[in-house]
Simulated assay, not measured.
Amino acid sequence: MAYEKPTSRHLLVILLVLSLALTVPAAAQETGTRVVQPGETIEVGAEPIVLDLIGLRNASSFNAITELRKYQGDNPARSVQRVIGVPKDSYFKINSHTFKGHYGRYFAYSKEDGVINDSSIVFVQAPPPTVTVTPTETSTVTEAPTATATTATEPTRAPLPGLIAVTAIALAGLLGIAQKR
Rank of each mutant, 00 (worst) to 15 (best):
E4C: 06
Y109D: 09
D74R: 02
I42M: 00
G101Q: 10
R9T: 10
A178R: 07
V80Q: 09
V141G: 02
F62R: 13
R69Y: 03
G162C: 07
K70D: 00
T167Y: 12
R69N: 03
A26E: 00
R34A: 11
G104E: 00
A178M: 04
L53C: 01
I65H: 08
Y71A: 06
L163R: 15
G32A: 10
Q125T: 00
V115G: 05
G114N: 03
L174H: 01
V36Y: 04
L22W: 12
L20H: 08
D89F: 01
S119W: 03
T151E: 14
L163D: 15
A108Y: 05
S90W: 09
V115S: 03
H102P: 03
V13K: 07
E4G: 04
N95Y: 04
P129I: 04
A149W: 07
T98L: 03
L15H: 00
A144S: 14
V122S: 04
T7R: 13
A144C: 09
P38D: 11
V50T: 14
P155C: 13
E4A: 10
S79K: 12
I14V: 10
N75C: 00
E67A: 15
V131H: 13
E4W: 11
E67C: 13
I121E: 02
S120Y: 15
S96Y: 09
E67K: 15
D89S: 00
A172Q: 07
E30N: 07
D74L: 04
V80G: 02
Y71G: 02
E30Y: 05
Q29A: 13
I84F: 09
V50Y: 04
T31N: 14
Q29N: 12
N63V: 13
V86Q: 12
N58Y: 01
T138G: 08
N63G: 11
T41M: 08
A168K: 01
G45R: 10
E112H: 15
Y106T: 02
L175Q: 14
I177C: 14
V24D: 00
R57E: 03
T146Q: 08
Q37K: 15
S79R: 14
A77P: 06
A59H: 14
Q29I: 05
R78A: 11
L20K: 06
L12H: 08
T136A: 09
E137P: 10
N117G: 11
I169C: 07
V166Y: 04
I177M: 13
P25H: 00
H10L: 06
T156R: 10
T151C: 02
G85C: 07
H10F: 08
Q81Y: 06
Q81S: 14
P127K: 12
A126H: 02
S119F: 01
Y91E: 15
A158I: 05
L174P: 06
K5I: 14
E43A: 07
F99E: 09
A64L: 07
D113P: 01
T142D: 15
